[in-house]
């Protein structure tokens, strides 16, 4: 087990242009499941590849288990990686795929079978050892890739969007399995994804990246409830957080907190809405609306209501909604960073 640390890690592909990764400082915890989350082009994969040793940093340092590995070859870092494509060796059987790291690292041959069977058993693919990768389903391939990663008991696991090639149904169960798997082996894991559900569901902590910068590091709850800036606020959550212009600040509130007045308890801000559209999504409803009063008029907001509540409103109707004050978040308009709460002159 080991922790991964990066110090001012930077990667610039084309000199003169903005770096793909900029001054990233991170420190995992022992045995932590850390998720790098960001849209495509956010630098999350580049960051992971630098940690793996597949990409040479332009500046900064990487430490694994306290040892500087910045310029070491991947094989000398004690890591294992699962690729988005799984990168199974197509000409080798499952058994040989899993035992390849053992061979490559000079583990005595007589230990191979035991270790391979242990790893395969852990992932429930003990029956598939003689098959070739092309004879496996997507889910099976993913497990082989995991088995290959775990077989030599690495100190750190790196996973690059390992679920993105699975269909939606399989992805949900795989998510759960992965979490369970991590709990069992307890190895420090870095997991890259663009899927916020995966990040929220699996991560001990989430690192939100945007344009090569770390925007926020925190537990799923922290990044969701207390976004550090407007990017994090709007990137996480579906639909994203409403941001309403209010003088020199932006006021943010989650769609699920924008509720009919009657449902909101305690200190609340009332917001009159004119509904422009409704989506019925089974378990919930999404209400698209414009604010209907004074100087906030015509700003778009979205509300998410449980299906159990019947709004009764239709397009064009004016309704009274409200947000509890404790659910309001404030962002500085120029820096877009989180700022302190203030009184609103709403009406």
């Amino acid at each position: 087990m080991a922790v991964v640390e990066t110090k001012d890690l930077t990667k610039v592909f084309t000199p003169g242009e903005r770096g793909a990764v900029n001054d990233v400082n991170l420190l995992t915890r022992e045995g932590e499941f850390m998720v790098f989350l960001g849209p495509s082009g956010s630098g999350k994969t580049t960051l992971l590849r630098m940690i793996a040793g597949l990409e040479d940093p332009t500046a900064g340092e990487i430490l694994i288990g306290g040892r500087v590995v910045t310029h070491l070859a991947p094989r000398d870092r004690g890591i294992a990686m699962v690729f988005q494509s799984y990168a199974l060796y197509p000409h080798l059987s499952v058994y040989k795929n899993i035992s390849f790291p053992l061979r490559a690292q000079g583990v005595p041959k007589e230990e191979h079978r035991g270790k391979v069977e242990w790893a395969a058993g852990l992932l429930g693919i003990g029956e598939l050892l003689e098959r070739k990768p092309r004879e496996l389903s997507g889910g099976e391939r993913q497990r082989v890739a995991l088995a290959r990663a775990i077989v030599r008991e690495p100190t750190v696991f790196l996973l690059d969007e390992p679920l993105s090639n699975l269909d939606a149904k399989l992805r949900a169960s795989a998510r759960e399995e992965l979490t369970e798997f991590h709990d069992r082996v307890g190895t420090t894991t870095i997991y890259v994804t663009h899927d916020q559900i995966e990040a929220m569901a699996m991560g001990d902590r989430i690192v939100v990246l945007h344009e090569g910068f770390v925007r926020q590091v925190g537990s799923p709850r922290e990044v969701y409830d207390d976004p550090a800036d407007t990017f994090v606020a709007t990137f996480l959550g579906s639909p994203p957080m409403n941001l309403v212009d209010h003088g020199d600040v932006l006021v943010g509130f989650r769609p699920e907190h924008l509720l009919p007045r009657s449902l909101v308890e305690g200190q609340a801000v009332e917001i009159g809405l004119r509904v422009t559209g409704i989506e019925y999504l089974g378990s919930e409803r999404i209400l698209y609306a414009l604010i209907d009063r004074d100087r906030f008029a015509e700003q778009r907001v979205v509300a998410k209501l449980p299906a159990t509540y019947d709004v009764g409103a239709a397009g064009g109707d004016a309704v009274d909604f409200a947000v509890a004050e404790r659910h309001l978040r404030f962002f500085d308009k120029t820096s877009e960073k989180r700022t302190g709460a203030r009184a609103l002159e709403w009406a």
Partner: peptide, 8 residues
């Protein structure tokens, strides 16, 4: 790359 990470 996978091979490199695997130690080859």
């Amino acid at each position: 790359e996978a091979a490199a990470v695997d130690g080859a």
